[in-house]
Amino acid sequence: MSVSAPEVPAKPARGMRIDFKTVGPLLALVLLVLLGISLNENFLSYNNITNVLARSSFIGIIAIGATFVITAGGLDLSVGSMAAVVAGVMIIVMNALIPSMGVSVGVVLIGMLAGLAVGGAAGIGNGLMVTRGRIEAFIVTLGTMGIFRSLVTFLADGGTLSLNFNVADLYRPVYYNGILGVPWPIIVFALVAIGGEIVMRRTAFGRYCAAIGSSEQVSRYSSINVDNVRLITYIVQGILVGVAVLLYVPRLGSASSTTGVLWELEAIAAVIIGGTTLKGGYGRIWGTVVGVIILGLIGNILNLQSFISPYLNGAFQGVIIILAVLLQRGRRAA
């Protein structure tokens, strides 16, 4: 039997249409790169590129976690403060182990494990309050943001926690060295990004995140354990904060109450620039990676020129961010 309608039997279409939603962030990135090249001949130099990517990697790794949280309809404002606490705890743990273990790789490894554990635990805390406690994610993580921030101030005694100089020397290569000239932070960032993309696209968990963010009810009626999936997104976020801090601590070997300030906003901004919807339901990791690099390049370009007054740095940043999102709209309104 036939239904007379301008619709035809569904043909599974494989080919992806090139549209602005996909190309938008890439376009913004290309424009920024061109701007950078025109401003400074060293922009594309090996050193500059590795510098920008390596220092973007912390936000990048955190933003990949945030992509999952946001795709599943959640939000985590506590990541910046959480990073500071993780850094603080790692430094305290490593300093405390020196008397018994001496300056050894073991100390660094235990410190790293402690960092991952603290991040994971913080994620579990956030996730449980959101899923079991039924409290708005915004409120929960706003609360923990304050808690973590004062916790690090308390741990640092209002000042700065510094890693023992000798351990710092041992740990330092984790930020500054790498394989074949690619620094470790970039390698880890790339691995996390590839892993994230696979999980988002090719696993049931990724699909469930999008489904829950799209409609919690539909997901529940489709036999998805909504609470567990949400909880896992927060735990993943916490652990990735831990991973990011593993790379951050060796850079300066210190943590203070200013560590990680506003990282949460940078991470969320990167996620949204990359095309993930803030209210959930659609997320893409590669977009987030592009978003992070865009944010990193903005800061870099501002430092590489001298005709924009440093007083206007924030304005330039704002314009680029809005532009990047605007490009995704493309000419849809036509």
Binding site: N40, N42, F43, N47, R55, L252, S256, T259
Partner: peptide, 15 residues
């Protein structure tokens, strides 16, 4: 701030 000192100096060195 330490983190910003690192970033700005890196870029000055590039430039």
């Amino acid at each position: 701030n330490r983190d910003d000192g690192f970033k700005v100096m890196q870029d000055f060195l590039t430039r």
